[in-house]
Amino acid sequence: MDKIKIAIQKSGRLNEDSLRILKDCGISIDNGKDQLKAQARNFPMEVLYLRNGDIPQYLRDGVVDIAIIGENVLIEKGTDIQFMEKLGFSKCRVSLAIPKSTSYSGINDLDGKRIATSYPNTVNRYLEERGVSAELHIINGSVEIAPNIGLADAICDIVSSGSTLFKNNLKEAEIMLKSEAVLAVSPKIDQEKSEILEKLRFRINSVLQARQSKYVLMNVPNDRLEDILKLLPGMRSPTVLPLAEAGWSSVHTVIKQDTFWEVIDGLKLAGAEGILVCPIEKMVL
C-alpha cells in the first residue's frame, strides 16, 4: 500500500503540537534524533521534517501530499494551497508593532514609514487594501530589534503572548490576521493518498471534538430534573439513570469547552450536586 507523505516543521512548538495530534490519532512515529524523515509503524504515513517556510513549495510540487503548517505561512507563501482542517493549536496573530513611545491613531500613521518584516506579501496586501504606502525591510529572523537600532519605524511579526514585544519596548498597533495550525493539501495528491487522507481526517476530527468537550456527571433531585435538562446542550439528549437513593438521578452529558463554565454555573444554581468533570480521549460522531 502506498504511503501518504506529511510535512511537519523541523523544530519548535508547531513540531511538538503536530506530533502530539498524530499520537492522539493513534499513529506511532519512529523518531530518531535529528532525523529528517521518519516512518509511522501502524499507519501508511511517512513524515518529513522541513523548514516551515519551505513547506508551501513542497506541497505545490507534490513532494509531500499534506502538511501541518501555520495558516499565516500559507497566507504569506501559499495562497494557492488549500487547507482542509483548522487544528486548534499553535494559535497566534500577525501584527504590526511600534515603539511604546510612539503615538498611534490608525493605519495611516504608517504611511511613508519603514517596516521590518519577514512577511512582506502579507504586509503589502494589508497596506494596499487600505491605501497605505510604506518601505519594507525584509528580515529573516528576529525583527523586534529593528526599531531599536534605527532600521525601521515599525515591525510586522507573529505574536503569541506579546512578551517578546514587551521585552523589546514595542506595542501592538494593528492585528492583521489571526492564525492557527491547519492541515494543508497538495494540489497533486492522487486518489489512493486522498483515501488515506480521509482516514486521517476522521481520526483528527475525533481528537479535536474530544479536546473541545468535557464529559460531565452530576446528581440531580428528581423534582429539579426537568429544569436541569433544559440547561444541557448534550450531543443528542443527556443520559438519566436512577440513583440508589430514592428521589435522585444521575445525569450524564457532554459540554463544549467554550461554554463550560457558564453551563456549570447554571447547573449549580438549578440544584445539581456532586458534579464530576472528565476529559474525553476521543469522540466519534
Rank of each mutant, 00 (worst) to 15 (best):
K178T: 13
S118N: 11
S186T: 08
I107A: 07
K214L: 10
I4G: 03
M176P: 08
K199G: 07
H252C: 10
A246P: 04
L14K: 02
S249P: 03
R13M: 07
E46D: 11
K5P: 02
R60A: 14
L232H: 04
V94N: 10
L285H: 12
A272Y: 03
L241R: 14
A40H: 03
E273Q: 08
L285F: 14
I29H: 03
L267M: 11
Y126V: 12
D111Y: 07
I189W: 02
V216G: 01
T239A: 11
D111H: 12
M218Y: 10
F83K: 06
G26V: 08
K171Y: 06
S194H: 07
G106R: 04
N169G: 04
G150L: 11
L269A: 15
M235F: 13
D61W: 05
G78H: 02
D153Q: 03
N168F: 11
N42D: 10
S163C: 06
N140E: 15
V132T: 03
T164H: 09
A40L: 04
A246F: 05
S161L: 00
I115Q: 04
D265F: 13
D54E: 12
V73Y: 06
P242S: 01
D17S: 13
K167L: 14
L269P: 00
N72T: 00
D227F: 01
S103Y: 01
V240W: 06
S237V: 03
D54V: 05
I204Q: 00
P147L: 10
C156P: 04
R41S: 15
A40E: 03
I155A: 05
P279Y: 10
E195L: 14
D17K: 14
Y49K: 00
V207Y: 01
Y49A: 04
N222D: 15
A244E: 14
K171C: 04
L87M: 05
K113Y: 06
E144M: 00
N219I: 12
I228W: 00
I81R: 05
K10N: 09
I196W: 02
L177A: 12
E198M: 11
E273W: 07
G70W: 02
C278Y: 06
R130C: 09
K282M: 10
E71D: 12
K5V: 10
G266P: 07
L151Q: 13
S194E: 07
S250C: 15
S160V: 14
G274R: 11
V220Y: 09
K100A: 08
D34H: 12
D65G: 10
D190G: 05
E85L: 15
I21F: 02
T79K: 15
Y126A: 09
F166H: 05
